[in-house]
């Protein structure tokens, strides 16, 4: 990773200008051509170093969401994970080291649809879903400083 790429990644995680040519504004700050900024971001996006360039939306900022947890017997994990992943409302699903070993996020335009999805998951698995909706969000997302090796 070049110094230029590192600066591009660390210094422009926020405040991409809302001006007609935002990459030209970055280029001016980094003292390079607009096309260099665009080509570098294209390359870093293509190789997976950058997920995307754009807006980071507040989780649950549109519609409702909750964090759900289940204690799944290990031998049923694959089957149940697949069932849960089949729901459009589910956008993250992690296996974690705990008795409650399956953790997933449900998002929907309204709370009723989340309740319906949870009820259906409980009915189809015979297991309880712990429903942990956000009460307060404390994180002020300013980006994440990357410390290079």
């Amino acid at each position: 990773m070049t110094d230029f790429e590192r600066r591009l990644l660390n210094e422009f995680q926020r405040d991409l200008p809302l001006t007609p040519r935002p990459f030209a504004a970055i280029a001016e700050k980094l003292d390079c051509e607009e096309s260099t900024v665009i080509e570098t971001l294209e390359r870093l996006t293509a190789d997976g170093t950058v997920s995307r360039v754009g807006a980071v939306f507040k989780p649950g900022g549109v519609g409702e969401s909750t964090l759900a947890a289940m204690a799944v017997p290990p031998e049923r994990l694959e089957e149940i994970a697949e069932l849960i992943n089949g729901f459009d409302e589910v956008n993250h699903n992690y296996e974690r080291e705990h008795r409650l070993n399956l953790w997933f996020v449900l998002c929907a335009p309204d709370r009723a649809r989340i309740d319906k999805a949870i009820a259906e998951i409980e009915a189809r698995t015979g297991l309880t879903v712990l429903d942990l909706p956000m009460i307060e969000d404390y994180h002020l997302d300013l980006g994440f400083p990357i410390q290079w090796d």
Binding site: F12, Q13, T49, V50, R52, V56, L142, I146
Partner: peptide, 18 residues
């Protein structure tokens, strides 16, 4: 952005890849 629906606009690095 002002209403907090958008938290930031910029480069979103893939921390896992990094």
């Amino acid at each position: 952005l002002e209403d907090g629906i958008i938290r930031r606009i910029g480069c979103v690095p893939n921390h896992y890849a990094l």
